[in-house]
Design a protein around this nucleic acid. Structure first.
Lengths: 111, 111
DNA sequence: AGTCTACATGTAGGCTGTCTATACGTAGAC
DNA sequence: GTCTACGTATAGACAGCCTACATGTAGACT
């Protein structure tokens, strides 16, 4: 998967995996991999800064926890984040429709 | 439409509108707008550099023409470009499948 | 004791492609 | 003489995803 293709869709992915339950960064990466059938291997250098950005914007909130001697920062959707996810979903639908309409260059038979 | 979302898909769009017939930059912009139902307004500062890049790579070739006193640089798909377009199309299908599978967070009812 | 893997978070800096803004020029309408 | 459509092009800003690296715990295995 071309990394550049993810541009502008990362937020939707992150918000989406956090929709059902709060998760920490590492678990988010695993969830993305699992949900995508192994196709998405998002590096930590992408995920952690993105999560911080989303928290700064106000779509996520986080808190530290210690589980099995390891520290986790667990992120959860805020109300604003939940609304944003809805926006991301409709933006995604529009996006695929628009690009698809250009790419589906049906060969019109003249006549 | 969020500009960042186009990242990594511009090539597919450009190659696609050139599939049926050679076009010059200005006409390409119009074709994108038309095919997308008005949703795509790609600025010249995006299209012209992208076309040059695609020519440099070898997916397009170009030649100058003068029509009605105005100079046009007309681009056409090379054989490599045509093959690349096929690749872009299947990449697009995979992309939408993968992202879609993550975004379609079906709410599984327990049981 | 030492090594390895899985778990877990984080930053610095690079890369690159899209965008904004600007420049230049022709043709035709008004 | 001004405006709009047509037509190409570049410089520099911007932003986000990536690579590479740093740091640390826990548990298994040798």
């Amino acid at each position: 998967m071309n990394p550049d293709a993810l541009r502008g869709h990362m937020d939707a992915l992150l918000l989406s995996v956090l929709e059902r339950e709060p998760l920490h960064g590492y678990a988010i990466i695993e969830a993305l991999q699992e949900r995508s059938g192994g196709a998405l291997s998002v590096p930590t250098g992408t995920v952690y800064p993105a999560l911080r950005r989303l928290e700064r914007i106000g779509y996520l909130s986080s808190e530290w926890a210690t589980v099995g001697g390891r520290k986790r920062r667990t992120y959860r959707l805020t109300d604003a984040g939940r609304r944003q996810l809805e926006g991301e979903r409709s933006a995604w639908r529009e996006f695929t429709t628009v690009i698809g309409s250009v790419l589906r260059a049906e060969v019109r038979t003249s006549g």
